[in-house]
C-alpha cells in the first residue's frame, strides 16, 4: 500500500470509528461500534433512526467535528449512511 493510501485509510477509519460511537450513543445501541456497517442506511430501514434521533445526531456531528448540517435541506441529505457522514467530514476538513 502506498503511503498516501495508508494515510487516507487511517484518517478515514479514525473518523469512521468516532461516527460509529456517536451513532451508538445517540441510538442507545447496545452493540460494539464495529457492528455498525459503514454503508448501513441510517433512516427508515437499516439502523432505523427517526427525525428526533436525527436532531441529536446533527448536534453531535457539529459538536464533535464542527460539521454544520442544519439549515439547508440539501446539507441534511449528507447524512444517509455512516460513510456519507464520513465523506462530509473529510470534505469539510479538506476545504478548511
Amino acid at each position: 500500500m502506498t503511503t498516501d493510501l495508508s494515510d487516507y485509510v487511517a484518517s478515514r477509519e479514525a473518523i469512521l470509528d468516532q461516527v460509529r460511537r456517536i451513532l451508538r450513543d445517540t441510538m442507545k445501541l447496545k452493540i460494539e461500534p464495529q457492528a455498525i456497517d459503514p454503508d448501513a442506511p441510517l433512516f427508515g430501514t437499516g439502523l432505523g433512526m427517526d427525525s428526533v434521533d436525527a436532531v441529536e445526531l446533527v448536534i453531535q456531528l457539529d459538536t464533535v467535528f464542527g460539521l454544520q448540517l442544519s439549515g439547508s435541506p440539501e446539507a441534511f441529505l449528507k447524512i444517509r449512511s455512516v460513510n456519507t457522514i464520513v465523506d462530509a467530514i473529510m470534505e469539510m476538513t479538506d476545504e478548511s
Binding site: M1, T2, L5, Y8, V9, R12, E13, L16, P38, D39, P41, R80, S81, N83, T84, V86, D87, M90
Partner: peptide, 27 residues
Amino acid sequence: SVAHPGIDEFFASDRDPASPIWTVSSP
C-alpha cells in the same frame, strides 16, 4: 484494509488498457 470509499488508486487489471475504478459511499 482498503474497503473504504474515496479511493482512486484501484483498477480492473484484466482490461486492456486497465480500467481505473473509484470507490464511493452508498447510496
